[in-house]
């Protein structure tokens, strides 16, 4: 077994309030390099919550998330942001592209934040990413001029901008037609296979989930499949 890229140790998340709500609890999960994992389960079972915890977008109220062997329990907000920037990439159900920026501009945002290379080089890399996802000729357009499937692919390109170790996708095909959805999943499968990128996606589409290399099933905030192999 390869070393775990993302590891959850007994994580739980409780929303505080007069009546505390448990989103997920007691989750042990270990995901290795190049795995393509589907998190499935009925609505409200805590799929997205788990994904946000694994993606360091939210903090667990118990347990800890270990990213590439680093325990993130003690990291402050800025350190988590830095990890998200360099190691993780998010794709959501909604594309969340900035409407004023071109397609290329959107893909370049994470690159520019990370910095370290001259602008021209970033531009070339972003263009190559778009070519790779079949959007080479759309680079100068605004997101509003693209179709839903194209926008979602731009969002994937943006998630891939800083060559992350893990892609986290939250219902990435939720707003797409079957054909576009299949394209997105093909891209994920290829990424996992060819570049060793770990892909974790939340979906409730059984057909798509069947195409992944591993399924993690959640019911009422608890894993019903073994999380650690």
């Amino acid at each position: 077994m390869t070393a775990a890229v993302v590891e959850a140790r007994g994580i739980g998340r409780v929303l505080p309030g007069p009546v505390p709500v448990t989103l997920v609890e007691g989750i042990d999960l270990s995901i290795g390099e190049g795995e393509f994992v589907a998190i499935t389960g009925p609505s409200g079972s805590g799929k997205s919550s788990l994904l946000y915890l694994l993606g360091l977008l939210d903090r667990p109220t118990s347990g800890t998330v270990i990213l590439e062997g680093r325990d993130t329990a003690e990291a402050d907000a800025a350190e988590l942001a830095a990890l998200r920037l360099s190691k993780l990439g998010f794709v959501f159900q909604f594309h969340f592209l900035l409407p004023e920026f071109t397609v290329l501009g959107n893909v370049m945002i994470p690159m520019r934040k990370l910095g370290g290379s001259p602008e021209a080089e970033l531009r070339t890399r972003a263009q190559a990413l778009l070519e790779d996802l079949g959007l080479g000729d759309q680079a100068a357009k605004l997101p509003s001029q693209l179709s839903g499937g194209q926008r979602q692919r731009v969002a994937i390109a943006r998630a891939l901008a800083n060559r992350p170790r893990v892609i986290l996708a939250d219902e990435p095909t939720g707003n797409l037609d079957t054909k576009s959805a299949q394209t997105v999943f093909d891209i994920f499968a290829r990424l996992a296979r060819e570049t060793g990128t770990t892909v974790i996606t939340v979906t409730h589409d059984e057909g798509l989930a069947a195409q992944t290399s591993r399924r993690v099933n959640l019911v009422d905030g608890r894993l019903v499949t073994p999380g650690v192999r």
Partner: peptide, 16 residues
């Protein structure tokens, strides 16, 4: 607010 959310998920800090 959506842009802010996505920028934060990308890795921009609160200070940014």
């Amino acid at each position: 607010s959506r842009d802010i959310a996505i920028l934060k998920s990308i890795g921009l800090t609160e200070a940014d």
